[in-house]
């Protein structure tokens, strides 16, 4: 095969903007896999882009009606009573996105008994929210306590089954999360995402943006661990947010510092050799929302599906989390000049 160093590089780096801005329309039924530089069968350039020439799907893509996705009004109707929404993002995996999304939702709901909080897990190939909330094994249901849980896993026959899905299928699943789930009246919808910057992120971003023209996507919360390897991925995520025009509410540093239960001395498990998330936040001019220490009990609470905030309300980690929740609440409320939501 002929080497082609320039070709992918040149095409690759002008595309993020195109991928982000592509308005959604109905997804056509394809007869062949999408080609390499496919603009996306649901984008407005479908069937007309230069890479579409010769693609067996071209006529199908080109003949699908252009214009907005017919599902958008349905999604907008579903989300009409959702007052705020925020994304929990991180370029890196395993930094505690799901843990933090769960804690944040519990923190928001726990601060006021009237608050209704929804949590949507868009990590389709590795959903962990069900286990963290202790609702593993349940079907899709609605409860009166402020939770309306829906996860892909609940639709799988067994909890160990792998979801081996390509991008287009994941986009479809996320759409049906938003379209088919009765979210009802929520004060806040917290959206947990998988690591990386790919299909899921593009789908969530464009659906929330297009379905809610008032801009109910309040912003993104970035989670990082202190070491540079993780910060590097977060830097890419900030670049993504900037390109996608998602406001960044701030960065949370998770797993920062560990207090030895025996000698009470603090040590840095993930050493912040470049100043950690705080330095990154300063460098990138985004708010720093706080540092949450590594507490083995958080992991244990998640394993057993208990609420860490309720079980250990006085621990240093709980205090740090509540501080972050407070700052997030303030940041979201300030953005719209609204009253602070019931918290």
């Amino acid at each position: 095969m002929a080497p082609s160093l320039e070709e992918p590089a040149a095409q690759a780096f002008d595309s993020p903007q195109a991928a982000l801005e592509a308005p959604l329309k109905a997804q056509p039924k394809l007869v062949a896999p999408e080609p390499e530089h496919c603009p996306g069968p649901s984008s407005s350039a479908a069937g007309t882009a230069s890479s579409c020439a010769g693609c067996p799907n071209q006529s199908i893509c080109a003949s699908t009606p252009k214009g907005p996705d017919p599902d958008l009004p349905a999604i907008a109707a579903r989300l009409s009573r959702v007052r705020h929404s925020l994304l929990v993002l991180s370029g890196k995996g395993g930094v505690g996105k799901s843990t933090f999304a769960a804690l944040l939702a519990q923190g928001l709901a726990g601060a006021d008994p009237r608050a209704q909080v929804g949590l949507m897990d868009t990590d389709l190939t590795g959903p962990s929210i069900p286990k963290m909330l202790g609702v593993e094994g349940e079907g899709v249901h609605v409860s009166g306590e402020g939770w309306e849980p829906v996860w892909a896993e609940f639709m799988l026959p067994s909890r160990d089954d792998a979801v081996i899905w390509r991008g287009a299928k994941k986009t479809g699943m996320i759409k049906s999360f938003l379209r088919d789930v009765s979210w009802g009246a929520l004060d806040c919808l917290v959206v947990d995402t998988p690591p990386g910057t790919s299909d899921e992120h593009l789908a969530v971003n464009s659906l929330l943006r297009d379905a809610a023209p008032r801009g109910r996507l309040d912003g993104a919360l970035l989670v990082s661990t202190p070491q540079e390897v993780a910060l590097q991925d977060v830097r890419r995520m900030l670049d993504f947010c900037r390109k996608a025009a998602i406001p960044v509410l701030g960065i949370v540093e998770n797993m920062s510092g560990f207090v030895c239960p025996k000698c009470k001395a603090e040590s840095q498990i993930f050493r912040a050799s470049t100043g950690g998330a705080r330095a990154l936040a300063d460098e990138q001019r985004v708010p720093f929302l706080g540092a949450v220490p590594l507490d083995p009990r958080i992991g244990m609470a998640c394993d057993y599906g208990e609420s860490f905030l309720e079980s250990y309300p006085d621990s240093a980690a709980s205090k740090a989390i509540r501080g972050v929740v407070r700052r997030v609440t303030r940041a979201m409320a300030l953005r719209y000049g609204e009253e602070i939501m019931h918290i």
Binding site: A19, H37, L202, Q232, K243
Partner: peptide, 9 residues
């Protein structure tokens, strides 16, 4: 620092 925003194909 640049994000790679790529779809599946």
């Amino acid at each position: 620092g640049s994000a790679v925003v790529w779809r599946g194909p």
